[in-house]
Amino acid sequence: MTKILNVNHLGKAYTSGSKKLEVLNDINFHVNEGESFAIVGPSGSGKTTLLGLCAGLDGADSGTIELCATRLNALNEDERALLRNSKVGFIFQNFQLLPTLTALENVIVPLELQGADNPENIGLELLKKVGLENRVDHYPSQLSGGEQQRVALARAFSSKPSILFADEPTGNLDEETGEKVVQLLFELNQEAGTTLVIVTHDMNLANKCKRVLKLKGGRVQAEQLSDRL
């Protein structure tokens, strides 16, 4: 199997006044192409920091990350942005939709950045898949939380990313809505064959993935096949 994400001896610390806060220490793991992978742990364990480093949103203090056969440490900020735009999709806990754009316009932003042909047709088809074909002209403020996250799902898959990072994708949703969003996420992911990396504190969600990495205090506590297998 080809590794799409390879993390070796990763470390990250932040300075607060005279104190140095070590967030991640000697993190090692890999994710194979087409695999679903969950990162779990209590609040403050370093999950979101790790996700940001793996996606090239921030730089590590030590160790290496290879994403889509590219070593992130060797790239500057602009080069990391180009890699993200061409290879990476994101889903966030707080949706991060652009408030001045409609649902359809939010979905096609990545496509327009890539200069894709017929972005509106692609966007409409994806919104139909997530059950929002009647909400294409609505703005985020006119949508429920679950609807906003479904728009975010459609946007994440619109550019056909090689790897999708999801940070607590159900964190702001009630249980029933969260279950519907998770079902859509895995359905779209299976259809697209995308590699999926999810940060979550929800073990039910984590166990829908093939493998689970457990963090505690900024270190890997365990890595295992999920309970579903």
Rank of each mutant, 00 (worst) to 15 (best):
E120T: 09
I108E: 05
G89E: 03
G145H: 12
G56L: 11
D137W: 07
K47W: 02
T102W: 13
D26A: 03
L67F: 12
N85Y: 04
N121V: 08
P42W: 06
L83D: 05
F90E: 08
E66L: 04
E147G: 04
G63K: 04
S86Q: 15
D78R: 00
G59Q: 13
L104R: 02
G146T: 01
G89I: 10
V88A: 02
E66W: 04
K87L: 01
D78P: 00
K129M: 12
G115K: 10
V109W: 00
D61H: 15
R135S: 15
A103F: 11
L57P: 02
R135K: 15
G56Y: 12
V107H: 02
E120R: 13
A154V: 11
N28D: 15
G52I: 09
G34S: 14
E33H: 10
N106S: 08
L143F: 13
V151C: 08
G63P: 06
L72A: 06
G46K: 11
V136M: 13
C68S: 05
E79K: 00
T48V: 11
I27L: 11
D61R: 13
N106W: 13
L82P: 03
T100W: 08
Y139E: 05
E120L: 09
N76M: 00
E33A: 13
A81K: 00
D78S: 03
K20S: 15
G34R: 15
N73P: 03
C68M: 00
H30N: 12
A69R: 14
G44H: 07
A38L: 13
F37C: 07
L143I: 15
N85E: 08
E79S: 01
D117Y: 06
V109I: 14
P110L: 04
I65H: 05
A38K: 13
R71T: 11
G46A: 08
P42F: 06
R80F: 02
E125I: 08
G52F: 13
L83T: 01
H30C: 06
K87M: 02
I39A: 06
E112Y: 02
R80P: 02
G46T: 08
L127I: 08
G145Q: 11
L82E: 12
Y139R: 12
A69G: 09
S86K: 15
L21V: 15
R84K: 07
Q142N: 14
T48S: 15
H138V: 10
I27Q: 10
I65Y: 09
L51V: 12
G34C: 14
L113F: 04
L51I: 15
L101R: 07
Q114I: 06
I65S: 01
L24P: 06
L126M: 10
N32L: 09
V130N: 10
L72N: 04
